[in-house]
């Protein structure tokens, strides 16, 4: 085990996989930086706008770590095409908010070409890395978490690692996967640290993880909201509520079996999701649990989401927008019967 940051964990996965497989490429805007600038032939100016791809061009060269113009459709489509010709590209979309400019190449081309061409081919392995998450005052078009849009389209896999170990493990799994994987990196998690296994430790796509076992309520959370849920769980102990926190880890395909198993034990569900609420993953989970485990529910499931508004800029406004510990504690408390919550939960 080694302690490392979430950023470095992703970087390590990229480096290890690029060393292991000479056909893995990293492309995107300033994934190295300084392309064509004298003195930067073998050195990157940035290694990614948030430094996630630092050191890669120095190690693997500009034929494998390839800076692109601001042309997402072109270079993501290129990655899809290259996937049919033996190359596994990890293409950076930078901010998931930008997906609008290249959505067709993702949802109609990458996602569908395997099925539409007959469904028996070897797949189109491509990883699209993108940042999600609010909290850094990045405002309306650079702080969203609109993964529900991508989960909506069959043929994609979408992952949202929370821990550094999962960041590394899911990146390994994503690169090795034969299908298009959208790898979502939360901006506020880059500098968080955690224990990461040494050696090859891929994490399976499509599996949630229990971060805190509990008996009274299931809190399913996505990306940085796992941290909010865990903090809420700590506070809830003081109110006599023992919360189970599930880190969803994969948005698509959704690990409903894990959620149902938990809800069947606790009888209560709160989903914490910083994506906007309409047609969100949270709403999908609530609907699925209601329709498939209605009999197990002791209370109506709750969603903890931002309001359905564009992400505002000013710190006071963004802080009011984002789900926080208070919101989760209140949502859980509202599910508990009045009176002694511990007795009521049994």
């Amino acid at each position: 085990m080694s302690t490392m940051t979430y950023r470095d964990a992703i970087n390590a996965a990229l480096a290890e996989e690029m060393a292991r497989d000479p056909r893995v490429l990293v492309t995107g805007e300033d994934v190295a930086g300084g392309a064509s600038v004298e003195g930067f032939e073998r050195v990157g100016a940035w290694g990614g706008v948030f430094g996630v791809t630092h050191g890669l061009v120095e190690r693997f060269g500009r034929d494998r770590v390839i800076d692109t113009p601001i042309s997402e459709s072109a270079y993501i489509g290129c990655a899809v095409g290259a996937a049919g010709y033996g190359y596994r590209t990890v293409a950076e979309l930078q901010f998931l908010d930008f997906m609008g400019v290249c959505l067709d190449q993702i949802v109609n081309q990458a996602a569908k070409l395997t099925y539409v061409r007959g469904g028996t081919g070897p797949g189109l392995p491509i990883v699209i890395r993108a940042m999600i998450g609010a909290g850094v005052r990045s405002a309306a078009q650079q702080g969203q978490s609109p993964y529900s849009t991508l989960a909506h389209f069959p043929g994609l896999k979408v992952v949202t690692p929370f821990t550094p170990a999962d960041a590394k493990g899911l990146m390994l799994a994503a690169i090795r996967d034969a299908d298009p994987v959208i790898f979502l990196e939360h901006k506020l998690l880059f500098d968080t640290t955690g224990e990461v296994p040494d050696g090859d430790a891929p994490v399976p796509i499509g599996r949630a993880a229990v971060r805190r076992a509990g008996a009274d309520v299931t809190i399913v959370a996505i990306a940085r909201m796992v941290s909010v849920a865990l903090d809420a769980a700590t506070e809830l102990v003081g109110r006599g509520v023992d919360a189970e926190v599930l880190d969803l880890r994969t948005i698509a395909p959704l690990d409903l079996p894990a959620v149902l198993a938990s809800v069947r034990r606790t009888g209560r569900l709160v989903v914490v999701d910083e994506d906007t609420p309409r047609c969100s993953v949270a709403s999908d989970l609530v609907a699925l649990v209601c329709s498939r485990a209605f009999d197990a529910l002791r209370a109506a499931p709750a969603m903890v989401s931002p309001p359905h508004i564009p992400l505002p800029f000013a710190p006071a406004l963004e802080d009011a927008y984002l789900p926080g510990v208070r919101d989760v504690v209140d949502a859980v408390t509202a599910l508990m019967p009045a009176g002694d919550p511990v007795a009521g939960a049994r």
């Binding site: 489509g77 290129c78 095409g81 290259a82 081309q109």
Partner: peptide, 29 residues
């Protein structure tokens, strides 16, 4: 959507212009 990767016909589709980015892939390869 007629396609036959074995013959080198990689993809066709109804979204106008979508084939241009895709063609860059085999070219880069």
């Amino acid at each position: 959507h007629i396609a036959d990767p074995a013959s080198g016909h990689f993809a066709s589709g109804g979204v106008v212009g979508a084939g241009a980015p895709l063609a860059l892939g085999p070219a880069l390869a």
